[in-house]
Every structure is written in structure tokens, then in C-alpha cells.
Amino acid sequence: MNRGRRKALQSGGATLLALLAANGWLPSARAQSWNKSAFDAHSLGDTMQALGGGEPAQSKEIAFFQTPEIAENGAVVPIGISSSLPNTQAIAILIEKNPNMLAAVFDILPGTEPTITTRVKMAQTSNVYALVKADGKYYVASKEIKVTLGGCGG
């Protein structure tokens, strides 16, 4: 195999992709944008509006797992969310009593399981919302997590 040629093809391909991405011609480049108004929002209503959705419907098809009832340290709170809603397109984490509600949005691409785990910061005891976009509609489940030591203080 001609390794030099393969390398050249790879780097050439990467440069082309980067160019396309920089010009916003690829869907992945659009996905790389950051929804400032959604992350700046302070209420569920404002966040939903910024995300382009209406009031989400409560759903029992969304579950929290590996998520504590009580978080000793608000600076590192593990959150696991899974959705069994058909055609789940995105999973977002919102924390009601944080300065800004929206913590993260994960786009679930075709072939990817609608299950994610991550770690968030919580300023105080709060409801945490698992917001799921499925088949173009928004659904939500919530869970209260008690925080004994806040994660956003000085």
C-alpha cells in the first residue's frame, strides 16, 4: 500500500472538509453553532422559546439513571438520561435554580443510542429537567436533586 498517497489523500480531505465547514456548507458546521439565547435564558419558557419548541409534554419514557437523590458536592453532580421515545433527536439538561437553566444539549444522531451521562454543576437543591426532542416534539421529565454544598459559589 502506498502510505504516502494515503496520507496525502487524508490530509487533503481534511483540509477540504475544514474549508467547507468554515463556510457553513456542511450540516456538521451548522450543528457546531452555539445557541446563545437558549443558554442565556433564565426560565423554562424562555429556554423553550430559544430552542424553538413550545411547552414540553411530561413523559414517562424519559428516565434518569446513575443520578443521585442527594449530591454532596454541587460542583460535580452525575446525570444520566435515557429516552425510549421513538426518533429521539436531542437530549438536554436543564437545572431550574441555576443562574442559567440550560446546562447542555446533546444531538442524538442516527445510530446513536438516546442515552447519555455527564456531570453538571448545581448552585443549590433544584429540580433537574431532562428535555427530549423526539420526532420534532419536546418532552420532559424532572427529578429533584438535593445539594448539600453548592457548586457555583465563591
Binding site: 460542583a75 440550560l102 447542555a104 446533546f106 444531538d107
Partner: peptide
Amino acid sequence: SKTVLSAQWGTAVAKNPFVSFRFKG
């Protein structure tokens, strides 16, 4: 070269972020 996950994060994701997920294949 196929994107399997893309995410937007705010300031509430913990320091030294961790994420786990699964994809088919």
C-alpha cells in the same frame, strides 16, 4: 469520519467534563 454525537454546553457542565454514550456499530 461519521459524526455520532454533537453537543452544545453551557457553564453548568462540571469542571473537567465527562461524557459517555453508545452508538451502533
